[in-house]
Write a protein that binds this DNA or RNA. Sequence first.
RNA 1: GGCCCAGUGGCUCAGUUGGUUAGAGCGCCGCCCUGUCACGGCGGAGGUCGUCGGUUCAAAUCCGUCCUGGGUCGCCA
Length: 595
Amino acid sequence: MSESMQGLKRSNRCTEITDQNVGNIVTIMGWVQKQRNKGGIIFVDVRDRSGLVQVIFEESECGKTHFEKAEKLRSEFVVAIVGVVEKRTGAVNTAMKTGTIEIRAKELRILSEAETPPFPIEADSKTKEELRLKYRYLDLRRPDLQKNLILRSKVATCVRTFLAEEGFLEIETPMLTKSTPEGARDYLVPSRIHPGNFYALPQSPQLFKQLLMCSGYDRYFQIVKCFRDEDLRADRQPEFTQIDMEMSFVSVDEVIEVNEKLLKKVYKDNLDIDLAIPFERIKWIDAMNTYGSDKPDTRFGMHLVDVSEVVSDSDFVVFSNAIKEGGSVQGINVLGQASMPRKKIDKLVEFAKGYGVKGLPYLAILENGEYKCSFGKFFSEEETKALVKKMNGKPGDLLLFAADKRKLVWDVLGALRCELAETLMLYDQNQNNFLWVTEFPLLEYNEEAGRYVAMHHPFTMPMDEDLHLLDTDPGKVRAKAYDIVLNGTELGGGSVRIFQNDIQEKMFSVLGFSKEEAYERFGFLLDAFKYGVPPHAGLAYGLDRMIMLMANQDNIREVIAFPKVKDASCLMTEAPNVVDKKQLEELMISLVKED
RNA sequence: GGCCCAGUGGCUCAGUUGGUUAGAGCGCCGCCCUGUCACGGCGGAGGUCGUCGGUUCAAAUCCGUCCUGGGUCGCCA
């Protein structure tokens, strides 16, 4: 049985009713959170996206018909209730936002009945995510998810308002576009009209926003879906949202400045947190040397120390060979953890091996000054002392080392310090350490491809002072690229773009594209540059990650209404799915049968 | 593709060394209850222990396979 709401109009959301409304007649509409039937009196908690309010039914007030309907109420029924707001006499519920008042019902309409949901609709759900995602529309009724999505909406509005005030124009770019094989895998969309041809969904609006600069729009932004067909992670979905922006006639500093103002406003307006700007900046090479990461968490120390010089002649071949082969030996000092049990150390060794190192040599400096060292038999006392001194080791400290190629050592120790900081709780969870990482390498050598690939993308401007190295030593060229990092998470990144055709062509040539290949892929951009292109630069944030961190979640799915699971499928819609044979025929697509 | 974790009534979990009829809390159903808000009281229903196979007199428990979900490495210009 479901009744019409004809003649009724919602007057308030549940928690918009306060002491101020006492005596008012209100009409609320929402879901039954809980019915408590005491016999002659029935309490019903009604929920909408604002929260809960208690409604009280007594036959003397609402009459027999409505009272009998109230007796039938079950969780998640959708109801409309007309009643009088009353102050609670003695039974104030301090845990409730509306705990000082209640609504004495005069009329009840059951707009929709409901089956018992497969899991409880409540905050701090303990239900398995698999089930929550299958019934996402129920999961989304829970207050935590509603809070996250409301925050997300507010932040998006805040960003739009700020950028509009700063003179940015929101301009949409196509979803059906051209595949750009550099970088992540593209999601492809077959063309019916051009059989055998495919659109690609954008990995980012990069080229289009650069073209908009060529067209004179000077400050562009867009809150936009992007697509990457790569494996998922806790903070990675195949479709995700960027706050994308581009500016003409600006330098790195101006991009950074406007974005610091943006972040300051977003945090102030939505979380009431005052961020101190300007944020700290660190050069990429310093970030790697100090933190072993290009997205360092600076809330705690445990800095990497390069001990290569001290151990290069050691009898411990793990150390000496790593250096001989061009790698390095570095360590971190885990303060006060010398007595870490063997089992825990073994776990750390396993953790490190996951990154590809063979082991994790350690040296514990016991409180009595003695050493417990996994490579002690290869080290003289003097060598050990020198190593401890270099690591600034004190009694009680645990020193962990990695010896391998420089990149691998950074990766392992960078990850290890974050892992240790989390388990040892070395940082303040309420701290927000924003950080700009600058002067990224322009290129990195890809062993598999046997050539250099762009670290950011092929349109990133080299630093002026390194331009001459493009021909002779491309690996040494630094880029006018910058990332914004928060507590060890990359929130966004951007760069000054190449706007000179000769530099762009040189860049393509270093990347191994012939002029023809470059034109085949990006000809429209190179052509556009011929007709008057302003210097320009930009930045893009991962909105999902930003909201995840603002909402204190450790998973991006908690801030996305309808996320996908690890294998990129949707448990609710069961996408992706097979399609009708006719659809495939129309697209001239035949599937290769597997044996 | 690799490694790690998890899967037991609707939900969250317990289940000893392999041993008789697999338990609990919540939820659900019925009856009762005029101040509850983690309402309360009485009664009740509900399980092929993720799948398939193996070992055994006997498997939720041991072994293997596969499936599902999560984390992570590779990957993510």
